[in-house]
Design a binder for these strands. Structure first.
Lengths: 220, 220
DNA sequence: ACTTATTTGTCCGTATGTATA
DNA sequence: CTATACATACGGACAAATAAG
């Protein structure tokens, strides 16, 4: 049985990921408490968890706000994320079992089906499963955890990146190249392909900066 | 002004780092509360932070215990650490300023002087500064933070590794090769050299497993 | 399997510090 | 600058769940 604060953390985290709570927005403990029908204590504990993950910032006696990530820091985070994922891909190419390959291909094909879905977020969600498959394929539990944590922090931005015109199709063909490299055991190639796939999002300074202002304006 | 739970987290973290609280040991909230002269609330908040860092493990309704790092997990952590440091080295080779070079060389020479110091920990401490120089040279604040965090968690094990006979001299010559590569801007070489330098500690399964039993016995 | 005891998870009251008029 | 209002940080109490006998 899961802890109450764990569930609350996930709920609040999701609200932040989908932009329901925008960066910089103040998180009122009492308000959240009544909203979820609990007291302030479990809310506080959930907020503390989010704070140690870097999702929100807690200023002593001044409450918590959703973390505002500067474009500079965002670039830095993508730079690290790309290397973490590259490492996952290299290890996956060497260590994946036939069952892992099957799971990866299934996730990949699920993305293919979602390419022209009416809801653009559908591809986003399936893409997440795809990346998680590669993390898991590294067979390094600590690395998987690190990758997941970073992924969660960058989630809102990765999602917005797919809104750029034509990005979904390009994303899929990049995925395809990665899959081939992994299955054929071309470790270094897999790493480089996945790194570039992630860094495309980081390299486009302008897109990202633009999405920054967009994310703070969109409340849904 | 810092929060109470922040200070408590640091205090408890230190107790764990110096072995005052051994891996697997149960952390009694009430006991810690009376020990620090506070109520259970700030203790709980500190524990939650330590749990999200992976320092302790909180099982629902069953309390918190100091995380037990299995040899398997230790290997995994070193595997990740080696890639993080490799990334730092690659970036450092491309981005270091002349001032950065000077700082790196200074730290390197400080290690050289400590090679035959009576206290073997002297080399360890100067080696830490050396590695921090490389982190800083990446000029990626987020990466620096990640590297520091991981470094802190592996600190006890890195220190023990240097007790192996002849390891200090080998460590220094590996450092030397890394320094040359960084200064000459050979990015990929610097990365690979530093990765191997770290992984030497991970590859020696037996040494690490041996140090595991030793570390749980030494209370000072 | 039942009872007891300890410990955690949650709620609420209060005081202190921050922001605002 | 003072005073007021309000949100946060902490303490204490209660209830529920687990472990022990």
């Amino acid at each position: 049985m899961k802890k109450r604060s764990e569930l609350l953390r996930e709920a609040i985290e999701e609200m932040i990921a989908v932009g329901k709570l925008a960066p910089g927005q103040h998180l009122d403990e009492t308000e959240l408490a009544t909203q979820f029908g609990v007291s302030r204590t479990p809310i506080r504990e959930a907020l503390i968890q989010l704070a140690s993950m870097g999702i929100i910032v807690m200023r002593p006696r001044r409450g918590a706000i959703v973390a505002e990530i500067s474009p500079q820091k965002l670039i830095e985070m993508f730079e690290v994320m790309s290397e973490i994922e590259a490492m996952c891909a290299r290890l996956a190419a060497r260590r994946m079992s036939p069952a892992d390959h099957a799971a990866l291909l299934a996730a990949h094909h699920a993305c293919e089906e979602a390419r022209n879905a009416p809801d653009p977020d559908e591809y986003f969600y399936r893409g997440e499963t795809f990346h998680q498959c590669i993390y898991a394929g590294s067979h390094n539990a600590f690395l998987i955890e690190q990758a997941r944590t970073l992924h969660r922090r960058l989630r809102p931005y990765r999602r917005l990146q797919l809104r750029v015109h034509g990005r979904i199709d390009k994303s899929f063909s990049e995925h395809d190249a990665v899959v081939q490299a992994i299955i054929e055991g071309r470790s270094d190639a897999a790493g480089e392909l996945l790194r570039d796939h992630i860094m495309i999002q980081g390299h486009r300074f302008t897109d990202l900066i633009a999405s920054l202002s967009r994310i703070s304006n969109q409340a849904a």
